[in-house]
Amino acid sequence: MAISPRDPDQQTFPLSDEQRLAWLRLIRSENVGPATFKNLIGHFGSAQRAIEAAPNLSRRGGRAIRIASRPDAERELEAATRAGIRFVGMGEPDYPPWLRHADAPPPLLSVRGSVAGLTRPAVAIVGARNASVAGRKMAFMLARDLGEAGLLVVSGLARGIDSSAHEASIRTGTVAVFAGGADVLYPPENAGLLAAILEHDGAAISEMPIGWEPRARDFPRRNRIIAGMTLATVVVEAAERSGSLITARLALEQNREVMAVPGSPIDPRAGGSNGLLKQGARLVTEARDVTEALAPLLGRFSEPASATGEFSAPDIQDFEPADTDRDRLYEALGPTPVGLDDIIRFTGLAPRTVQVLLLELDLAGRVERHPGSLISLR
């Protein structure tokens, strides 16, 4: 069964060169992650206005932060251009449409290679680095058949299962998501595989700065992109403490399909994937299991976009909540994550007041964001 490409989100907008530069400055600023970026744009209407307001907000939250300078952003843009990399903003036509609906989507993706396939319906295939021959063969067959059915195959360019999935889908379309910068190959032995992907109009993408060397803590962030830009995550051979299980959990948290290939119960490389099946993941033995499950989901995200854009917004740069409001909010927060609606309900503060106070604390590095829009004190 062939699946036709379909963009579930038609509301897109291009960024001007100046807007793209401001977006890059804002996301590279201290304590500004994807969620904070989105909230700042939502409040101030543009990245430039958010940049102007952020220092005062962070000082009110208790700590001054560093805003990325224009020269720093210009140097990164120049380095990206030299490496054949372009930046695609959330909401632009080439941004992966399902990623817009994920938790904390990257405001900017650096893309090395072709952007043509990024808007296609996609499936993630992930699994063990030390995969068995049988596991690699299964990943190869799944990726080949899913690619022939019209699906983009997404993985992390790691050894083992990831590599097999990419190899099988080079000619039909595959995207490698990097934990480091889009110009930083990891692992180095996959240089030939990456070259083949790029030669056949595939892509390598990342949210990290150009030249960024991946660290252990960057791989879960990478996995969130893999899970977020795909309709389903298929796990092939994963141990009980595998990073692939993080991808599966993130997919589940974002209401995407989680599937797994059954493995031998005496092979520790299948302990995690078999565990997913026990927990209710869809069992996969052939590509048809995936395509039949996804067919009704292709229209699932057809609602109007809530993607971050550049738009007019109420001028709240001069709005400063009272100290008593700030104290009330801080007393209401603790180490246990709570939702924004609960904070508003129990403090009795106006939503606008709570949002501005949380921005202050966010920029000062005093609160932590959790999946499901939950918030706690650091």
Rank of each mutant, 00 (worst) to 15 (best):
P5V: 09
D7L: 12
D9V: 04
Q10A: 14
T12M: 05
L15H: 03
Q19G: 13
W23Q: 10
L24D: 00
K38S: 15
N39Q: 13
Q48I: 02
A54F: 06
A54Y: 07
P55A: 09
R60N: 10
G62N: 05
A64Q: 15
A64Y: 01
S69Q: 07
E76T: 00
E76N: 03
L77F: 05
M90V: 14
G91T: 01
P93T: 04
P93Y: 10
P97S: 07
W98Y: 11
D103I: 00
A104L: 01
P106N: 11
G113H: 07
T119Q: 09
T119K: 06
R120L: 08
A122M: 03
I125S: 11
I125N: 13
S132T: 15
G135R: 09
A139M: 14
A139V: 15
A143Y: 10
R144A: 15
R144I: 07
L152H: 02
V153W: 04
V153H: 06
S155E: 07
G160D: 10
S163R: 14
A168M: 06
T172W: 04
T174N: 02
T174C: 13
D183V: 00
V184Q: 01
L185S: 00
E189S: 14
N190P: 05
G192K: 10
I197Y: 01
E199V: 03
E199C: 02
H200G: 01
G202S: 08
A203V: 03
M208C: 04
R215M: 15
D218F: 10
R222Q: 06
N223S: 08
R224H: 08
A232N: 08
V234N: 07
V235W: 10
A251V: 02
R256E: 05
P262T: 08
G263Q: 14
P265C: 06
P268M: 12
R269L: 15
R269K: 15
L277Q: 01
Q279I: 01
G280N: 07
R282T: 13
T285G: 08
E292N: 08
A293G: 02
A293P: 01
A295Q: 10
R300P: 00
S302T: 14
A307K: 03
T308A: 13
A313G: 01
I316P: 00
F319E: 11
T324Q: 12
R326N: 00
R328G: 11
L329G: 07
L329P: 03
A332D: 02
L333W: 05
L333A: 05
P335E: 14
V338M: 13
G339E: 13
F346L: 06
G348P: 06
P351K: 03
R352L: 14
E368H: 10
E368L: 13
H370T: 02
S376W: 06
L377F: 09
